[in-house]
Design a protein around this nucleic acid. Structure first.
Lengths: 191, 191
DNA sequence: TTGCGCGGCGAACGATCGTTCGCTAGCATA
DNA sequence: TATGCTAGCGAACGATCGTTCGCCGCGCAA
């Protein structure tokens, strides 16, 4: 029952819908302000907190923390479920969390169920950092016979092999093995 | 060596950097136009093609196709891996893909392996949209005995039950069942 | 060769923008 | 009670916005 207007939340919702920030007067209308001056002050606060920034030409843009999400803990106090949200541990920006080197990072759609025991289902997006070397145990995107495939990189008698994480599939022992990149993360949408 | 100015591409680059579209005059400067009228016409073309849209209050915003990227399959042309890289390039697409209603969205860390067959491993982050109702078949965060738990919502003789996706776990038939939110996505980091 | 569509130019215009300033009301501290 | 701080209001202002209109030059098809 908080009467916190949650201005930031509403701005984020607007942005999620439109991928653009509205003008000060629209923000005012959106948040219930009747004066643009109030908006200016709010923007100042949000900017100081790192949620908003300005481009070089003074156009409003989302700041670093704009895309952060709060992480809820698992404790639930006294059967009151909103307490789950109060148990917030910290804020995480999904993108920054998953992508460390944007210019070298690519998304690859997972095909097939050969990595299902590693939690990679068909249709999942794998976050792949491109590079030509990988370590034993890494999940890699490899090029075999002009096809890309996602497997666990393992060693067998001093040779690198590709291990599916699904007992129904055999270990691959390709003559030529080219590493396309290393899987550093993955995500999926439900429904 | 195309002399195609690739206006759209440069607009996308700007947007990727700033998460905001510039004004007509800035677009002009950016793309090498000296007249805003030219920009207006270009915008008209891009709008007709579905790359740009306007909000209800006529503010320029990215259109449906603005975030399109060529969807690369698993084929790798002539052993040249960069073909795979033509997939999604945009780091931020991840967040925007997963989170539809920022103000109602929370991250919850998955505990235990009871949902492992649904691809939810311990430590995974579940993207949860907070709400008190859910449909049969949804993966939900529910509150049972003052603890939050992630399970598949199912129906059994007209009653809602919580189904783990792991044969080692029993179906939960709690007397009291409170929905905390619906899992709309998940992601994980490797290493 | 003429005509026409298209992409871009340049200037002008009213609308909207964000800023600024002084003001009020509430709340916490002293 | 007095003091300040914070959030918001309301009006005015110059700057910038996006639109509009007429114009030009090029390429292509008749």
């Amino acid at each position: 029952m908080s009467d916190d207007p949650d201005y930031l939340g509403r701005l984020r919702d607007y942005y999620a819908r439109h991928r653009v920030l509205p003008s000060y007067s629209r923000i005012g209308g959106l948040l219930g302000f009747s004066s643009k001056a109030s908006v200016a002050k709010l923007v100042g606060r949000l900017q100081a907190a790192g949620y908003l920034e300005f481009t070089a030409d003074r156009r409003l843009k989302p700041g670093r923390r704009f895309f952060e999400r709060s992480v809820a803990g698992s404790k639930v106090a006294a059967g009151f479920p909103s307490a789950v949200a109060d148990d917030l541990q910290d804020d995480v920006a999904i993108d920054q969390d998953l992508v460390r080197h944007p210019s070298r990072t690519v998304l690859v759609t997972v095909k097939g169920d050969s990595m299902i025991d590693a939690g990679l289902l068909p249709g999942d997006r794998a976050v792949v950092e491109r590079r030509h070397t990988a370590a034993e145990g890494d999940i890699v995107v490899a090029i075999v016979d002009n096809e890309s495939t996602i497997k666990r990189l393992a060693k067998e008698r001093g040779r690198f092999v590709l291990k599916p994480e699904n007992k129904a599939y055999p270990i691959l022992r390709p003559k030529e093995l080219e590493i396309f990149g290393v899987v550093v993360g993955s995500y999926r949408k439900y429904r």
